[in-house]
């Protein structure tokens, strides 16, 4: 058998070389903008706009990072906005995980009349892209007086059909005997959920938590609609404002870019297993 495998894997030397060349070339092309961001973040602005671009500068201009954090007026607005982004992203991802797992558990392990209808209704919301309801949603949220607040930034994203689907699929194979044993021991249903089901849903929870954290860290459109005051701004809004200011220093701009990406890079390198989730995708194709 192994000879077949070897044959299958052996390509013409020339073809193989071309494939490697293509992969390395595309890899370099894809990584250039990232390399640009990292190198430019440590350069004074004069160096960044030099022709040609000096990939390695003589001056290591670490002040960019300090200036990025301090802000042009020394208000440390960047920090304030980072805290906002963290509060929103962490809360959304926490509440999404809780709500999705409790709903997914209800749909996976409880027989009740109308269960399929409930499931279909929830799945139907996947057909409603956020972009098409943002204007009425904006009016709902302002009508409830939640504009310009953490609540308004968090609550509309907590019910997440994909998350519910993910948790339901994950919990369906969970052994019923374990649940029944806990019931016989006299554990209440909420207790079974928090002490038996949740601790066993780790991988699905991690995947979902990261997906929702990223979505909110990246969310521009919604804060753009409902945030008015400076101190409720999130990082995407901070960067937008920063870009619109014409006299921004390019080095500081890239330092802001690096700092704003830091949480994502940390997650990416520590939890890459859950970061790129194709399992959820493939299970969703299987319906």
């Amino acid at each position: 058998m192994s000879t077949f495998k070897a044959k299958y894997l052996t390509l013409d030397k020339a073809v193989q070389a071309l494939i490697w060349l293509f992969l390395i070339a595309s890899c370099v092309l894809v990584l250039i903008p990232l390399a640009f961001m990292f190198t430019a973040s440590t350069m004074p602005a004069i160096d960044i706009l030099k022709l040609p671009y000096p990939w390695i500068s003589d001056h290591f201009h670490w002040q960019n990072f300090w200036n990025a954090i301090r802000g042009p007026e020394g208000t440390f607005e960047f920090l304030r906005n980072t805290v906002n982004s963290l509060v929103v992203a962490i809360s959304v991802s926490f509440f999404t995980v809780m709500l999705s797992s409790i709903t997914g558990y209800g749909l996976a392990k409880f027989e009740f009349k109308g269960r399929n209808l409930v499931f279909m209704l929830i799945m139907a919301t996947m057909m409603i892209p956020f972009e098409t309801i943002m204007i009425p949603l904006y009016m709902v949220v302002t009508g409830m007086g939640m504009q310009d607040s953490y609540v308004g930034l968090i609550v509309p994203f907590v019910a997440n059909a994909f998350g519910i689907f993910l948790m339901r699929q994950f919990l369906i194979p969970f052994p019923n005997e374990v649940l029944d044993a806990a019931r016989i021991d006299g554990a209440s249903e909420p207790r079974i959920f928090t002490q038996v089901v949740l601790p066993n849903a780790g991988p699905a929870i991690a995947t979902l938590a990261i997906i929702s954290f990223r979505a909110q860290w990246d969310n521009l459109l919604w804060p753009l609609l409902i945030v008015q005051s400076e101190n409720m701004k999130t990082i995407p809004l901070y960067i937008t404002k920063f870009m619109a200011e014409t006299h921004s220093d390019e080095g500081i701009m890239m330092a802001v870019a690096v700092l704003a990406s830091l949480p994502m890079f940390i997650l990416f390198f520590t939890l890459s297993k859950y970061f790129v989730n194709t399992e959820g995708l493939h299970s969703s194709t299987k319906g």
Binding site: P33, T240, M254, A257, M264
Partner: peptide, 10 residues
């Protein structure tokens, strides 16, 4: 890994 805002900035 980058957010779309950062991507646009770069």
């Amino acid at each position: 890994v980058l957010s779309s805002v950062v991507a646009a900035l770069i």
